[in-house]
């Protein structure tokens, strides 16, 4: 956990890995301080007794909204690929994920 509001370096690196972000050495140092300070600010919530309070994840009041299962026009493969850097035939090209 954070000490003097500074988030430990290994924790910043762990979070960056989870978030798929390559951070520079300066960014790691900045985030140790900034995230530490921000998380300390969030501690204000510790004042509240929340055991009996239910969580609210959305406020629309809507549940299980579905649409008709009808086939409609969609983008052509060429249109769908038009913004990709690497494509092969009608596919997006990605790096191999298995050795």
């Amino acid at each position: 956990m954070k000490k003097n509001n500074i988030l430990p370096r290994e924790e910043v690196l762990h979070i960056a890995k989870l978030a798929c972000l390559d951070l520079s050495e300066k960014e790691v140092k900045d985030f140790q301080l900034q995230l530490g300070e921000i998380l300390a600010f969030m501690d204000v919530l510790k004042e509240l007794k929340l055991n009996d309070v239910k969580a609210t994840s959305q406020v629309s009041g809507l549940e299980y909204i579905t649409r008709a299962d009808k086939i409609k026009n969609s983008l052509s493969a060429d249109e769908a690929k038009s913004q990709a850097k690497k494509t092969y035939k009608s596919f997006f090209q990605v790096r191999a994920v298995l050795e």
């Binding site: 919530l45 509240l48 929340l50 309070v53 239910k54 969580a55 609210t56 994840s57």
Partner: peptide, 8 residues
């Protein structure tokens, strides 16, 4: 915890 505060 934040979702609970949202309820409040």
């Amino acid at each position: 915890k934040a979702l609970k505060v949202r309820t409040l």
